[in-house]
Design a protein around this nucleic acid. Sequence first.
DNA 1: TATCAACCTGAAAATACCCTGATATACAAT
DNA 2: ATTGTATATCAGGGTATTTTCAGGTTGATA
Lengths: 220, 220
Amino acid sequence: MKLLLAEDDKQLVEFLRPRLQRSGYTVEWSNNGIDAEFMALEENFDGIILDLGLPQKPGLEVLKNWREHHLTTPVLILTARDSWQERVDGLKAGADDYLGKPFHFEELSARLEAILRRHFGQLDNSLDFEGLTLDTEGQTVTSATGETHQLTAIEFRLLRHFMLNPNKIISKTELSEQIYEEEQLKDSNVIEVYINRLRTLLGKSWIKTFRGQGYRLSAP
Amino acid sequence: MKLLLAEDDKQLVEFLRPRLQRSGYTVEWSNNGIDAEFMALEENFDGIILDLGLPQKPGLEVLKNWREHHLTTPVLILTARDSWQERVDGLKAGADDYLGKPFHFEELSARLEAILRRHFGQLDNSLDFEGLTLDTEGQTVTSATGETHQLTAIEFRLLRHFMLNPNKIISKTELSEQIYEEEQLKDSNVIEVYINRLRTLLGKSWIKTFRGQGYRLSAP
DNA sequence: TATCAACCTGAAAATACCCTGATATACAAT
DNA sequence: ATTGTATATCAGGGTATTTTCAGGTTGATA
């Protein structure tokens, strides 16, 4: 899950970023409206946190522009104060939810997860596929046989992406884009290594290799 | 599915090409208007992505010329920015859809598939023909008897082309063009070998040989 | 029915890609 | 600092896919 955090208050960014990462998100960051607008159109984010008070280009305009481009990524807007007007405008422009500053991280996290769940069709904090259950809060996976494993950050991100796209061949490029913030490393076999780890956790046959194409999660 | 990507921004090409290929397209590329115009008239593309800001010959003229030659291939144009005028001109000149830069690959993919579907009738996650079902996301084929087989990259491309053109005789040249970017099939019998392989997977009688002409997919 | 080109097919060879255990590095916690 | 855990790198062996090859089969034509 890759998030775009469009916020110019550096202190707030430094507060949010590590917490979001710990929650299992990959976080990219932009401190102005123009960059934010561009990045969201270029890259493949799963969710966006957008401060309406961004410099260079007002958040509202950025948001409108995204929606005109048919970008459906869920957007949570941060409004500077209890400006009722701003929130209404934001929702009209296509925001999925809003949050007034200041806020507690827990509240942001809850609202964010809510709009992400809504968008990806999840009802609760777990993803299920053919007997596999991924607890997205505790970052654990339970296999059909009942074994539960605690996942590391990268294992979790990988597996979640598989479980959000079951029975679909996913390329290594796509996987590494889900996991890393910056551009991908050319000749590295990290993905292969983690596929290997997931296989030892879940059992060999859940993830099938398609040479030259990618990997697919399917029933064993 | 063979696409022509007419775009001079090398970075964008390097971004798009692998993603398109991963989506199952064969991608040929041209970095200027003159070559693009020629290639589209010479070769048999299923779709064209045309940047209007090409060097040597403006994309709009290229497009007009194609349509005057009665080339009906679906064309998706890329406009440099939010130029309303350019888009209107593009559609007037015979484009099927437009997309303003920058854009999100998912959006391009969606629009591309939309215009291809409009043109070819069907193109979603599964192709069906007389009981055969090809899952284009998971790259599996299910025969009438219920057996499901996983396909390798080449098997998949071949079979998809057959299922997009059922009951039609397809020459070996055309088939190899679907598989390889540059066409060069001198003294090789790869196609024959893979036809053989498909027959063992589906059953002998699905693919019929027409000596000197090609092969045809039809009900057994 | 003889001939020849086109096609079929099993298997081996070539290749590209992947797996995996060992090791090194980064990072966090105590 | 020290320890422990997570992540990244590396290299060599392993394997599926793709290509080639060679001998057999088929069908059109005269």
